[in-house]
Amino acid sequence: MKRKVHSGRKLTESQFGFLLALPALAVFGAIILYPLLNSFAMGFTNQSLLRPGRQYVGLLNFERIFLDPNILQVFVNTFVFVACTTAFSFSMGFIWAMVLNQGLRGSELLRGITLVNWIIPGTAIGFLWMWIFNGQYGVLNALLRGLGLIQENITWLGRPGSAMAAVVIARAWQTLPWYMAFLLAGLQAVPYEQVEAARIDGASNFGVFTRIVLPNMKFIIFLILILGVIGNLQHFDIIWVMTQGGPAQATTTLAVEVYRRAFQNWELGVAAAIGVLWVLLISIFAFFYIRNLERDS
């Protein structure tokens, strides 16, 4: 420790700073940047899980992807899944945050219990919702039958539309507490004087919301929506547990598709090629994210 202090003295300020970032730099290079670049390169080869070695095959993998009659569906699924989960979970989380922010007795406790949903392992959440949506003994069917809304049981996970809805609802349930926590923190940071002033000017609840709350929370809303979209785009486990991407690829998102191509069809090259397309797509997204962050800071 002594020696470190001495050597520290000899370093210039910026050298020292760089040294501190070095471990992160090394880890980043080794298990993020290199894998990304290598996976990119892999997209242009016939790398397989069954055999070592690989040969350059040009655009063959991309040709295969574009000739697949269902590939468009995978992109559409991904879009639907990401858009619906983010929008649904965000809006529910926002409303829930506002409800809890009203300062009702027990709100603190409710906030705590809500957060528990977020830390239940995704696999367990998948099990739970599979059970709720179960076509034979599921509670959802029983409830709907009880209310007279349906006559016969519905196999929710066995139909394309409802299977997608089911995974969306399950995933949104998992992330709702996360949005709530951020938004609640944001709500509490809204300056109270501004709300008061607006009230004096005769603003309604809606007016307070649009004129005071939203502008004040612009940054945090932007931030969590971006993070939410990124997280949902990556999402794998709940879908995998509930439907494995089925039936008939109705819930196959990009993450599931890449996994299946790589570890069930053993075609790493094709999987990587889909990854290349995916990254190209999100770069557009990343561009706006960074530009916005830079402008804000």
């Binding site: 269902n70 066995g158 139909r159 394309p160 089925g246 039936p247 008939a248 690829q249 109705a250």
Partner: peptide, 10 residues
């Protein structure tokens, strides 16, 4: 997958 697609009418 394709048989499922037909079964579900998509």
């Amino acid at each position: 997958e394709e048989v499922q697609a037909a079964l579900m009418g998509s």
